[in-house]
Design a protein around this nucleic acid. Structure first.
Lengths: 145, 145
DNA sequence: GCCATCTCCTTAACATGTTAATTATTGTCA
DNA sequence: TGACAATAATTAACATGTTAAGGAGATGGC
């Protein structure tokens, strides 16, 4: 088979990068006032949604590699937005929990973030938006059978 | 308006990250043998497709921020995969060109990379694949009206 | 020509992505 | 039990993402 590469203007990886940049740009603008990064925001959101959990689960749910999460957790601890304690049953595990201060950041920005998302739903149309999420899930090996 | 954030399991930014990871993982595996990174590959591909160009255009077409491109170009120069010369007409501009060694890397892996892409087309179906690219373009402010 | 301004590029500083090595703890099985 | 494998987390090293600042060259109005 002598297939040829698609033009970079029609490349899936590049399209994913550009779409991500388009989506994250207004979110980053919103977060710039809070002093936390996009990834720190993501970790706090997962903790707010699911509650306390161990670091490995948190990394998975936040779509972060473990070394990244280790650093981000340290930063969030310094900011007083999460606490980290060792699990007594399995002393390898670190249990991470959001603090009231961390929860406050989520609460303060949830509406604004939701409106940004609504804007993209409007851009694509609600039906296309859901279809897009389905297609993206198919590209994620973690959500395929 | 008291909108609520979508669950992180149905979050567009996270879905984009996970999809990108799913797509790039096999490409990174392929590139690991060559000693170049995903971004260096992207730069070489753009240069191979469009030919010689200035650094700003290269950054745009590669979807890289300028500071990143500066570093990547330096790395590729050290590897002997590109050359960089100052533009005589506009001495602010840096002209970047792929070398035969750089072109060889593209040529050696083009078929393999194309087959990886074909795999995703099969996963989604050709029609859905094209629809996905269209949706992603709508999220990219650089390609909207 | 001169100055303000803009553009292209580089550098710096910090955060994250990525892979590999290391440590501490737990689980397994002969 | 004791050796060995597996797991959770950290650390290290290097590349990139991101924002801000700075340097060099071009541009336009006066």
């Amino acid at each position: 088979m002598t297939s040829k590469l698609p033009s970079t203007s029609r490349s899936l990886p590049i399209a994913l990068i550009r779409a991500r940049e388009g989506v994250m740009s207004p979110i980053r603008d919103m977060l710039s006032e809070t002093g936390i990064t996009e990834q720190q925001w993501r970790v706090l959101r997962v903790l707010a949604e699911y509650g306390v959990m161990d670091a490995k689960t948190l990394a998975d749910r936040s779509s972060l590699l473990f070394p990244s999460l280790t650093r981000i957790a340290a930063t969030l601890r310094e900011k007083g937005l999460v606490t980290q304690t060792r699990d007594d049953q399995d002393r390898r595990r670190q249990i991470i929990q959001i603090t009231p201060e961390g929860q406050q950041i989520i609460d303060d920005r949830a509406d604004q973030a939701a409106q940004i998302v609504e804007g993209f739903k409007t851009t694509l149309g609600v039906e296309n938006y859901e279809t897009l999420l389905d297609f993206l899930a198919l590209l994620d090996p973690g959500s395929r059978g």
